[in-house]
């Protein structure tokens, strides 16, 4: 089987040590992990942009907003609407326990009817708000891109 290519470290190490030199460490690091694994790791962590970009603008924008919106959508989809009727000592009582269990179930259903009605409306409102924020985010991104291109044109004009 072909041996994976060794990873050449890019660390530019400096240290003051009686045993290891920087070159020893660079070489050892290069041989401790296959090149493809190191590349995968670096690719994965560098997919996420830096907070402050080189052009002095924070990178926090659509990606972070998208993260919050994703979390909001997940939360919305997981709203609990089922009755939580765990057995209790009272429901275990012979005859009366069974009756109590049925009354308890009906009471929960009644409460849930109103809660679900309210929750449904509230959820639709939240959903609409999320849609609106997503639209706005897209719009801001688009406008930002236009601003950047106009700025670039202006700079070119100055030059």
């Amino acid at each position: 089987m072909e041996k994976p290519e060794e990873q050449k470290s890019q660390l530019d190490i400096e240290l003051n040590d009686e045993v290891y030199s920087a070159a020893d460490l660079e070489a050892s690091i290069g041989s401790d992990m296959p090149a493809d694994q190191a590349e995968q790791i670096n690719q994965k962590v560098n997919e996420i942009p830096r907070f402050v970009k080189d052009n002095n603008r924070p990178a926090i924008g659509s990606k972070a907003i998208a993260h919050h919106l994703k979390a909001a959508r997940t939360a919305l989809a997981n709203v609990e609407t089922q009755p939580n009727l765990a057995p209790s000592p009272a429901t275990a009582t012979p005859v009366l326990g069974n009756l109590w269990g049925r009354i308890r179930g009906q009471m929960h259903e009644l409460v849930l009817f109103y809660v679900n009605r309210f929750g449904g409306t509230s959820g639709r409102v939240d959903g609409q708000l999320i849609e609106a924020i997503e639209e706005l985010t897209a719009l801001v991104e688009q406008q930002q891109a236009e601003i950047e291109s106009l700025k670039a044109e202006r700079e070119k004009g100055k030059g």
Partner: peptide, 8 residues
């Protein structure tokens, strides 16, 4: 280190 090579 002079470079941020996270795997290294």
């Amino acid at each position: 280190v002079g470079r941020k090579d996270f795997a290294g």
